[in-house]
Design a protein around this nucleic acid. Structure first.
Length: 257
DNA sequence: ATGACTGAGCATCTCAGA
């Protein structure tokens, strides 16, 4: 089973990149983030042609997540349980694929909107931990993936790429990420590559790609039985070197069975 | 110390991204 995640920074700008990539890499499920469009504007036909169904949680201009799947999936949630009823940000999709629960997230960045913006990020992380706890209490097999907007350790961002008080690395942010690990989730990439930088994002500015000034902020967290099936996890760096790329690259997870 | 790249939208500037 192959599952992938990709923050595409506008699906309408990146539809051809995604189509080419699906044809080559052939994931069973691809979680997308930062669609930057409503569901009606999502270019679904280009993916169904390739054998992928599309489940879209869209929003005008900002955010937006989706799942493309060539295996049967059922959408379980389109909003993160535990957030206020009037929360309209499209950042969460939860699927069932056979016995697996697959969650795709676009976690708030937290650097805009002042203290309220950062508080929203923390509240979102609290609700996410509660959701993961509930699933584990039900003995579910969980793959939690997407753009977490968290660089968990100092090795996960290039020197100078972020300031120490950035919302992606603030201690309160990292503590809430660690809480997911304490619940029993395994960081798939770090389980396979325990040391050294492995980036998934390079800013458009300041020649960040050319200088390899990147971040590791797109993750796969696996519940215990799923972690036992871990066979591979890698970012596809080649995508960042293409014409008009997203600033994030896809990350691919392979599970045995 | 400075500058600065991409995308969307009631758009030739502002907001957000990270």
């Amino acid at each position: 089973m192959r599952i992938a995640t990709w923050n595409v920074n506008s699906i309408r700008q990146r539809a051809e990149h995604v189509r080419d990539w699906l044809g080559r890499v052939q994931p069973d499920v691809l979680l997308l983030q930062e669609l930057k469009c409503e569901e009606a504007a999502f270019p679904a036909a280009g993916f169904t042609e390739l054998g992928y169904s599309a489940a879209v949680v869209g929003q005008k201009a900002y955010n937006g997540v989706a799942a493309l799947a060539r295996v049967p999936v059922e959408v379980v949630h389109r909003k993160l349980p535990g957030l206020p009823e009037d929360d309209a940000q499209a950042r969460y999709i939860e699927l069932r694929a056979g016995a697996l629960t697959i969650i795709g997230i676009y976690l708030p960045n937290g650097n805009s909107g002042g203290e309220a913006g950062y508080a929203y990020k923390l509240a979102w992380m609290e609700a996410l931990a509660a959701r993961v706890q509930a699933l584990l209490d039900d003995d579910a097999d969980v793959v939690l993936t997407g753009d977490f907007n968290v660089a968990p350790e100092d090795v996960d961002y290039a020197k100078g790429a972020l300031s120490a008080d950035d919302a992606l690395v603030r201690p309160e942010t990292r503590a809430r990420y660690r809480r997911l690990l304490w619940l029993g989730m395994t960081d798939a990439l770090r389980a396979l590559v325990p040391e050294g930088p492995v980036y998934t994002f390079w800013d458009y500015q300041s020649a960040a790609w050319q200088r390899n000034s990147g971040l590791r902020i797109d993750h796969f967290l696996l519940s215990p039985r799923v972690a036992e099936r871990l066979a591979g996890c890698r970012p596809d760096k080649d995508e960042r070197g293409k014409m008009q790329p997203s600033d994030h690259v896809p990350v691919v997870l392979d599970l045995a069975g």
